[in-house]
């Protein structure tokens, strides 16, 4: 017997591909552009969103019958904000360097449209268990794109992955590598992240014709 029913599995797998929050719903773009210049930051951002969304969706789902609908946005914001502060403090304590790289963008998870979107669209109308799965699924979908973009940007822009040179030994201060590769500075700029996200969308839609809108 499978651990998850078919319907529940779809909650996790759908946002990974055919209903991806970034490439299909085009939400959460700003953080995807801002912090994907290196892979480590992308990964940590993905994990942070995973935590906030998984826990946040459960909390909102548990509170869903108590929240007056007139002030639900405020309640949602308070839940996200408290979770984000937990993540922020945790990073400051255990990964200070990284928290400096991510700077305001951890704080800005609060405004990440994916999170508020899932609270509104799913957690307010479903039980805690399914909300949890939905949160995990969407956060994973977000993280997958972030990691993909971060992978290409760091590899081609700095010749490293997780800060480790993978394209030969770098020659100091020149951006050149012993293998002859040369850093592509454009990759480290936000416009290139947008172009890479665009290319991912292009590949995804040409593989699955159902996603093409007229």
């Amino acid at each position: 017997m499978a651990i998850l029913s078919k319907k529940d599995t779809k909650l996790i797998t759908d946002p990974l591909a055919d209903n991806n929050p970034i490439t299909i719903q085009v939400l959460g773009i700003c953080s995807a552009l801002a912090i994907t210049a290196d892979l480590k930051a992308s990964l940590v951002m993905g994990i942070a969103v995973l935590f906030v969304m998984g826990v946040g969706n459960v909390v909102i789902s548990l509170l869903r019958n108590l929240i007056p609908s007139k002030i639900r946005i405020i309640v949602q914001l308070i839940v996200v904000a408290s979770l984000v502060i937990v993540v922020d403090q945790f990073l400051k304590a255990y990964a200070f360097e990284l928290s400096k790289t991510l700077s305001v963008f951890i704080g800005l998870i609060i405004t990440n449209c994916i999170i508020m979107g899932r609270f509104e669209a799913f957690a307010l109308a479903n039980g805690p268990y399914r909300s949890f799965l939905d949160g995990i699924g969407n956060a994973l979908g977000y993280a997958v794109i972030l990691i993909l973009v971060g992978f290409f940007r760091e590899l081609l822009g700095a010749g490293t992955l997780f800060g480790i040179p993978v394209l030969g030994d770098p020659i100091e201060k020149t951006g050149l590598f012993s293998t002859g590769y040369e850093n592509n500075g454009f990759m480290l700029m936000p416009p290139m992240a947008l172009i890479i996200v665009g290319l991912i969308i292009w590949v995804q839609r040409s593989r699955n014709k159902e996603l093409i809108e007229d």
């Binding site: 020149t174 951006g175 040369e182 592509n184 500075g185 454009f186 990759m187 700029m189």
Partner: peptide, 9 residues
């Protein structure tokens, strides 16, 4: 523009 921003040196 690509050349300029990618390989400024």
């Amino acid at each position: 523009a690509f050349l300029f921003f990618a390989y400024p040196t």
